[in-house]
């Protein structure tokens, strides 16, 4: 399955990145370092995707490859920090969970975690975390939090949607179709008797139960 393949590609890119940090980018090192069951054929497949170049038994990233590897490493190490700092796991436990976690989070959430953790520079093992765009743009390190839309006061502030938490399929589909997708910026105009929310140029009335399923980043705007 292709989802599985993405998984393998990510693992290989991750291995190449860490080998590069150690300065040993031979094919053998890279294969050994990878967390998945992989061999030469997978490595060549990744080369065919235009992500790496294999030359004289050593591996180099292409420009596309670096970007993707950087993103996956960033997710992995931020996940580790989250486990250790916030959830209080040991770094060994965190390592294993982070491997799962890194595949599951979308870019919006990655940046959110980064902001939440105050833009950490290193992972619990002391390795550097590649900075995201928010970190580069010099956003002041702050703590930020997710809140359901039903608990957000009304103001002219733009709030970014983090995710939709709902098991109700029809509700999810309808919200997405109306434009409430993760990453979109919305405003809360009114709270009684129901919420009035602006998405792009449309206003919607939502009841509290529906609004409770829309989680937004709350607080980051103060520090922009």
């Amino acid at each position: 399955m292709s989802e599985n393949r993405d998984h393998v590609v990510d693992e290989l890119l991750e291995a190449v990145w860490t080998c590069r940090e150690d300065g040993q980018v031979t094919v053998d090192h890279c294969l050994e370092r990878a967390h998945a069951e992989v061999g030469m054929s997978e490595l060549i497949a990744v080369q065919d995707m235009g992500l790496i170049i294999i030359k004289n038994h050593s591996v180099e990233f292409t420009e596309k490859g670096v970007k993707r590897a950087e993103s996956i490493i960033r997710r992995h190490r931020l996940a580790e920090r989250l486990m250790v700092d916030v959830l209080g796991l040991t770094s060994e436990q965190s390592e294993k969970m982070a491997c799962e976690f890194e595949h599951a989070i979308v870019p919006e959430v990655t940046n959110g975690i980064c902001t939440l953790l105050g833009h950490p520079k290193e992972c619990p093992h002391g390795k550097p975390i590649p900075p995201g765009e928010d970190c580069k743009s010099g956003r002041i390190e702050v703590t930020s939090a997710l809140r359901p839309l039903s608990q957000v006061p009304c103001s002219e502030r733009l709030l970014r949607v983090a995710y939709l938490r709902t098991s109700d399929h029809d509700r999810l589909h309808q919200l997405l179709s109306l434009g409430f997708s993760p990453g979109v910026e919305i405003r809360v105009h009114q709270r009684t008797p129901v919420l009035v929310v602006q998405v792009e140029q449309s206003e919607f009335a939502l009841d509290y139960e529906v609004a409770g399923d829309i989680y937004v980043w709350f607080g980051e705007e103060n520090h922009r």
Binding site: L178, S202, E203, F204, A205, L206, D207, E209, V210
Partner: peptide, 9 residues
Amino acid sequence: RKQDFMLEL
């Protein structure tokens, strides 16, 4: 069951 209220203004 109760129904969602989502209405465009």
